[in-house]
Design a protein around this nucleic acid. Structure first.
Lengths: 330, 330
DNA sequence: TTGTATGCGTTATCAA
DNA sequence: TTGATAACGCATACAA
């Protein structure tokens, strides 16, 4: 591979001039610049980013660590991040922690070692530790879930309130024995949505709460839902806290010949393209996933640019989209 | 941040000994090694991968360039790649080309500049050019679609045959006026599946083919399907060439009150969690996406390891899963 | 087994 | 405006 010295030799100038020309930093004599460009083109010169990064002590790469690549909610965030990063000349490295603290910590380590310019992360659990990055001054923005014990930048959704509204909606439809299918303790969104569910029950004067926790996957939710449906006093409606789990819940319905809306009401978090295609259409709490990504990326870029004010916490709104799965049809 | 010299100073040894200890290359006196490790721990030393990469002229990073992050087919590939890469100590950078040749080429450039160890790519179009990587000796493996005019390593699916079988299945169910909703010309999978559809018609002695091309997204497929359904001689069955487009097709059905299986038969490529939840369940051609990822990653790692034999072309099998959407129900 | 010294390819500083 | 040169942090060839 051609190096900067090869280009310099061919253009009959110093490496410094080549560097200046190609980076457009300082002014260079137009004639020389043309020679440099010609030489670079002829040699098929591609600057070695490794060397540049080492010299500059920084990279034009953002790391995005998400907890589940197969969840459309997170891929939508990724799109948002990428779109903003692109325009600023940054590349995005997408890392899938898979709700696994070990993988997450390994990726945080890689991010540090590779000296990425900044990190956006949806923390997996209670013990996510980004202090190694903070110490080095690498900006970190948390999305979807806050970092434990950290007053850092965050882009979250008012998910407790949304869960409350969804539950209120089910109550308004006449459902009385509502259950919540949520995720593991310690996952903030799981806990918050459960709290929102409780808020609504409390406000309605209902004292018998009913919930199951499972891993954040369809298989777990299928089992949890099955348990609920097969219990002595099965719920007449369900609040499911993400769209992957909604699939599990609907599978459990299907296995029992239960029809959403008619037999058991259901509202799930996150919209997805398929939710209007199931029968009946699924009521959802839709979160501004793409916006979470763009807001987080802009915030991160601002931090990289040097804006080191106090930590920001942005809270976006979720919106209930009531469809037939939560409408009582006699 | 602590550097290797800091560790060396603290441990009272040379940087060479620190390097040797931490990389476990050459033998080091156990006592010294212990001192080095202690010093590294005390200083919170994290080796600078930038410097290491520059020195070694290689990185432990694979680039995976896929054409649509929001398509479950590609995220499944990503999981496969990641799982294999992990075990070999490599990180995976996931890049979303978004079916956009410009973004794709930008990512190829980044991959080259960052000197990644290898690249796995699902090429966007006819003009994808990886020669810059090849020239440098960076191994490249194509997945899902072959690289144009390149005898390189590939992991593909026998998709033409699968499309043929799916069409034969529709014929066997009694459908006679079958249409194909496919992607842009030049996208190999789109072309191959259309050919497979034609193979089946030809074998059955049917001469009137019917197809529409659209972009590989649900909106495009919705429009294409709508056109077909609203035409003078609407098809009695559809073959849709990916799962994102299937959503568009089903939306078009829904808007017209058409019930799959009863009114119009439909088979779509790619299985997804929701396909069994729609009513009626969607017949699919399921592709071994995860396996594509693992096979491609293993192949790439072998190439990185130095195995520079002739290019390999692996072709995996797809399988028809017939459900109610393609069963004629009188 | 350990240390010294060099270079990986850039960019930035300083003089000219 | 340009060029010579010194880092950046690490790994290794070579010498001890």
């Amino acid at each position: 591979m051609a190096t900067i010295s090869d280009v310099a030799a061919r253009a009959g100038v110093s490496t410094a001039t080549v560097s200046r020309t190609l980076n457009g930093k300082s002014t260079v004599d137009p004639a020389l610049a043309a020679k440099v460009r010609a030489a670079a083109a002829e040699l098929g010169y591609h600057p070695n980013a490794l060397a540049r990064n080492l010299r500059r002590q920084e990279t034009a790469v953002l790391a995005l660590i998400i907890s589940d690549v197969e969840n459309p909610f997170f891929t939508a965030i990724a799109r948002g991040v990428e779109d903003i990063a692109q325009t600023a000349g940054y590349s995005v490295v997408l890392c899938n922690s898979d709700e696994n603290e070990e993988k997450e910590s390994r990726y945080l380590d890689v991010a540090l070692q590779e000296r990425v310019a900044g990190v956006i992360i949806s923390p997996t659990g209670r013990s996510t530790d980004v202090s190694i990055l903070r110490e080095r001054g690498t900006p970190v923005v948390a999305v979807d879930r806050p970092l434990p014990a950290e007053p850092g930048d965050q882009v979250l959704v008012d998910t407790r309130r949304a869960a409350c509204e969804a539950t209120e909606h089910l109550l308004a439809e006449g459902y009385r024995h509502i259950a919540c299918v949520t995720g593991p303790e310690g996952v903030r969104t799981a806990d918050d949505r459960l709290e929102g569910y409780r808020d609504a029950l409390r406000a309605a004067g209902i004292t018998t709460e009913l919930f199951r926790r499972s891993e954040l996957r369809s298989a777990g939710a299928r089992e949890a839902t099955s348990e609920l449906l097969d219990s002595a006093e099965p719920p007449d409606a369900l609040l499911v806290i993400n769209n992957t789990m909604a699939i599990g819940a609907l599978e459990a319905f299907k296995a029992r010949g239960i029809r959403a809306g008619r037999d058991v009401g259901i509202v799930a978090f996150d919209d997805a393209p398929w939710t209007t295609l199931v029968d009946p259409p699924l009521s959802v709490v839709t979160q501004p996933a793409y916006d979470i990504g763009t807001v987080a990326a802009k915030l991160l870029l601002a931090r990289i640019g040097g804006g080191s004010d106090k930590p920001t916490a942005t809270v976006l709104e979720a919106r209930l989209v009531a469809r037939a799965s939560s409408r009582r049809t006699p």
